[in-house]
Computed example of a mutant assay.
Amino acid sequence: MAGKRPAPGSDGRPLSFIERKRREQLIEATIALVAEHGYAATSLARIAQAAGITKGAVLYHFPSKDAVVAAARTHVLDALVADVGAAVDAAPPGARPAAYVRRMVGYLTEHPDHARTLIEVLISGGRPDPAARREPFAALLQAAREARGLPPAADPRTPAVIAGGAIDAIVDARLQDPAYDSAAAAEALVTMLESTFLRT
């Protein structure tokens, strides 16, 4: 009996243009479905229906629901990291923590489907390593202190943890209430960081 055909790209060959576009379509459909209905209610059949193809066609590109959801999560994270990274890189070192806070809040409120997808994946057990988020921001805070001529902080992880929790809370408040002024909340967080951590 013949084995199952490997997913496109899994056998080492590059994806064709059509395969890349189909995968992108499936990822976008998955993001929209997870954001609207949650992880548990997003099935392969539902993904197929949203993409206008058969369930078998979905399985040609991804071996399981978890695989397509993982690809959607990676897509969302890559887009978030690229966007926030560009904003941080464009700022001078002393202003990079503020750029990070503003852009994290800005991106996630501008892309609520991405924010909801990340939340759903976390709830369903896809928790990333917290240090992967905390440590880069702690390094930005330390570099900002250095750029301002301040001595190194004993442990910049604490303000990084506090800021990460505040960003999550701001984005969640905006998701719950679209009238909530998340930009003003981001500015309040920047002011708090400036007054408590980035001054003598």
Rank of each mutant, 00 (worst) to 15 (best):
Met1Trp: 11
Met1Asp: 06
Gly3Lys: 13
Gly9Arg: 10
Gly12Met: 04
Gly12Tyr: 06
Arg13Val: 04
Pro14Glu: 08
Pro14Leu: 07
Pro14Arg: 13
Leu15Ile: 03
Phe17Arg: 15
Phe17Ser: 15
Gln25Cys: 00
Leu26Met: 07
Leu26Arg: 03
Ile27Pro: 11
Ala29Arg: 05
Ile31Leu: 13
Ala41Trp: 10
Arg46Cys: 05
Arg46Ile: 05
Gln49Arg: 00
Gln49Thr: 00
Ala50Gln: 08
Ile53Asn: 04
Thr54Leu: 08
Ala57Arg: 15
Ala57Trp: 15
Val58Pro: 14
Leu59Pro: 04
Tyr60Cys: 08
His61Glu: 03
Phe62Trp: 06
Ser64Gln: 01
Ser64Met: 08
His75Phe: 12
Val76Gly: 14
Leu77Gln: 12
Leu80Trp: 11
Leu80Ala: 08
Val81Gly: 05
Val84Asp: 08
Val84Thr: 14
Ala90Cys: 05
Ala91Gly: 09
Pro92Asn: 03
Pro93Ser: 10
Pro93Phe: 13
Pro97Asp: 01
Pro97Met: 00
Pro97Trp: 00
Ala98Pro: 02
Tyr100Asp: 09
Arg102Ser: 10
Leu108Lys: 14
Leu108Gln: 14
Thr109Lys: 06
Glu110Lys: 02
His111Glu: 14
His111Arg: 15
His111Tyr: 09
Asp113Tyr: 06
Asp113Leu: 14
Asp113Phe: 13
Ala115Leu: 01
Glu120Arg: 02
Gly125Pro: 14
Gly126Pro: 05
Pro128Met: 15
Pro130Cys: 02
Phe137Asn: 03
Phe137Pro: 02
Phe137Tyr: 13
Ala138Pro: 11
Ala139Arg: 15
Ala139Ser: 11
Ala144Asn: 08
Asp155Val: 14
Pro156Gln: 00
Arg157Asp: 01
Thr158Asp: 10
Pro159Val: 02
Ala160Gln: 07
Ala163Ile: 05
Ala163Ser: 09
Gly164Ser: 08
Ile167Ala: 01
Ile167Leu: 08
Asp168Asn: 08
Asp168Val: 06
Ala169Asn: 10
Ile170Thr: 08
Asp172Phe: 05
Arg174Leu: 04
Arg174Lys: 03
Arg174Gln: 12
Pro178Phe: 10
Ala179Arg: 12
Tyr180Gly: 01
Tyr180Lys: 02
Asp181His: 03
Ser182Leu: 00
Ala183Glu: 05
Ala183Ser: 03
Ala183Lys: 06
Ala184Ser: 14
Ala185His: 12
Glu187Asn: 11
Ala188Glu: 10
Ala188Met: 07
Thr191Gly: 06
Met192Val: 01
Glu194Phe: 12
Ser195Thr: 09
Thr196Arg: 12
Leu198Lys: 03
Leu198Asp: 05
Arg199Met: 12
Thr200Ile: 00
